[in-house]
């Protein structure tokens, strides 16, 4: 396990002692955690794993290419889920970001903590969990997926955007204020131009992530490729699973390429 030596820098003896103690704690904690995990593992299954792996691997190949036609609609659904979800996320995240940023928040004392909580809550809950909840509430379908993606995106976009807003150049803002511009005009003329490139970069970046996430949201019933994956897994149709995974992989690679191109063009 942790085979890195602890004294990578010269420190005072006291700090070094503290560091050694820290490592010791880590080792002890690791051993304890390992034991807890062992208790809850059925080792018979683990010993059986190589056989299982070989078995699944054998069944997975070759992919069932004829299934590809059936995947086109789910693929379209997945792309829509990501795109519309990102759109929803952006629409919700922008006001939250402006409320969270110290220099633009209208009532910092009340609105800032609220906005920051929204951001933290959205960020700490994975889109799959959001989808799980929304499917339970709204029923299975794309709508639940879109809202899940949107809710998860608020935190990501909101956080990066509000940090961007806080880093804007105060002198440009002052210069526009000094012309007698209203608050809204200052926002429009001094702050928005400064954060616009970051905004597009963040949005495209999130869209790229959302493509990956929307591909699996179907596992909990939110439609798209994940739904087909779930069905194929349930019926143990391994050749179909392989094909779906390949389609997901291709989509992800493509979207990553698109997002890298767009971001390079913006910056």
């Amino acid at each position: 396990m942790s085979d890195f030596p602890a004294s990578w820098q010269f420190r005072s003896p006291k700090a070094r002692l503290a560091l050694w103690f820290g490592w010791l704690c880590l080792v002890a904690l690791f051993v304890w955690c390992w034991q807890v995990m062992n208790e809850r593992t059925i080792w018979m299954f683990v010993q059986d794993a190589p056989k299982q792996a070989a078995d699944i691997g054998g069944r997975m190949w070759p992919p069932r290419w004829s299934y590809l036609g059936e995947l086109m609609v789910p693929l379209w659904d997945t792309l829509n889920m990501a795109t519309l979800g990102t759109l929803l996320g952006v629409i919700l995240a922008v006001p939250v970001a402006f409320m969270a940023a110290r220099n633009t928040s209208p009532f910092p004392l009340i609105l800032r903590p609220i906005a920051l909580f929204i951001i933290v809550a959205s960020r700490s809950i994975n889109s799959l969990i959001w989808a799980l909840l929304l499917v339970a509430i709204l029923g299975p379908g794309l709508l639940a997926g879109i809202i899940a993606i949107g809710l998860r995106s608020i935190g990501f976009i909101g956080k990066l955007l509000y940090e961007g807003i806080e880093e804007t150049d105060i002198r440009q803002v002052e210069a526009i204020t000094a012309t007698g511009a209203s608050q809204a005009q200052v926002l429009n003329y001094a702050i928005v131009p400064q954060i616009l490139p970051a905004f597009w970069g963040i949005t495209v970046f999130r869209w790229d992530i959302n493509i990956r996430e929307s591909a699996i949201l179907g596992l909990v019933g939110a439609g798209g490729l994940g739904l087909k994956l779930q069905n194929s897994l349930n019926t143990l149709a391994w050749p179909q699973v392989t094909l779906i995974l390949l389609v997901i992989l291709a989509t992800v690679v493509l979207s990553e390429w698109v997002s890298a191109k767009v971001r390079a063009a913006i910056i």
């Binding site: 210069a175 526009i176 012309t179 007698g180 131009p193």
Partner: peptide, 25 residues
């Protein structure tokens, strides 16, 4: 203290912000 990402013309026109309404600007 120019707004660097706006055009020169927009920067000059921003001197009129106190006179025009939000929508026009």
């Amino acid at each position: 203290a120019l707004v660097e990402r706006l055009s020169v013309m927009e920067n000059v026109l921003s001197g009129r912000l106190g006179y025009v309404g939000f929508w026009a600007s």
